[in-house]
Amino acid sequence: MNITVNGNQINTDSTTLISIIYAYYPNSKENLKGIAIAINGEIVPKSEWNSYNIRENDTIELISATQGG
């Protein structure tokens, strides 16, 4: 399945959102605090990450706080 994560085209066998998050951002395995996800422009609440199924061509934005302001 082809998806896009933060602008990068990725081919993956995973179907759950949480496995995509862990694969893309391994540090998140220790702590999911401070990050948020939008898929195809819609925010997916943290409570749904474990059960959310990714579909072909989904565009995922994985964001966190960084220096700014």
Partner: peptide
């Protein structure tokens, strides 16, 4: 303190949030 919201840097070691 202010922070900006940007795409996660997968190689980031320190987290400003933490």
């Amino acid at each position: 303190a202010t922070v900006a919201i940007r795409r996660v840097d997968p190689n980031q070691k320190l987290s400003i949030f933490n």
